[in-house]
Amino acid sequence: MNARLRLGLACLALPAAAALAAPLLSALLGLDPAEPDLFNRFAPPSAANPLGTDDLGRDVLLRLAYGARVSLAVGLATALAATLIGTAIGLFAAWAGGVADAVLMRVADALLALPALPLLVILAGLDPAVVGLPRGEPIADMIRIVAILAAFGWVGVARLARAQALSTLARDHVRAARALGVSEARLVLRHVLPALSGPVSVATALAVAGAVLAESTLSFLGLGIAPPAPSWGNMLAGAQEAVFEAPQAALWPGLCIMLAVAGATLVADGLRRG
């Protein structure tokens, strides 16, 4: 473990602990993260509300902790999905070669060449009911965002996986295994796949960072996790509306996003330097 990896994991530990401890915190403070208290708007930090309250009088610390659950869950699920899809596509492209490889890599190039956020905004703006997802439920919002982000996130993983798989397929031990009559499926899964773990884990960590950032942006724009369910992004949307009344409200959710994204980026850096 090098210094960057340790620092990155330390940055991620705080939001992770907050996400796990959210129900405990709720019981401890005797508050509900979604329950408005209009007589207690923008309260300053106190023993009852350690970080104060927001525009509807809800406890900021508690909403940050529940927001951590949403942001980290979306980040990890997106990275997991992007890694599975990307590894499968990269591995297949490298193994199949020829037309299949060329077509898949052209699709990947096109997705990289297009501006991601305008596309995400259009996709997130479409009605989820058409594909059978209920509207407005936090869990349905999360599934929708993960699906949209993973549809773009696989590209980075696939390119790294393909490059590594190509070099591994040309190595002597793989050629020897093939000459010995090992089946193609076993060859790819047993001898090539394990060699991908290095570059793929770097791409996964970067995908977590990208997904947390993208989810917060979409939620800020009102296209991601819908209030009253808390997410760091939609908390900032509320904070911007109250910027003249309570500028301090914009501080904490942004710091949380920055901490989580910097943590995942540092983990990726640390893994790359091995």
């Binding site: 911007q240 500028p247 959710p253 942004g254 996003i257 994204v261 910097a262």
Partner: peptide
Amino acid sequence: AILAASAPTFWIGILLIILFAVL
């Protein structure tokens, strides 16, 4: 560089608004 890359763009905008427009 790592901190600037990790801060969401909209948050940078809100912070600048708070500093230069509100305060």
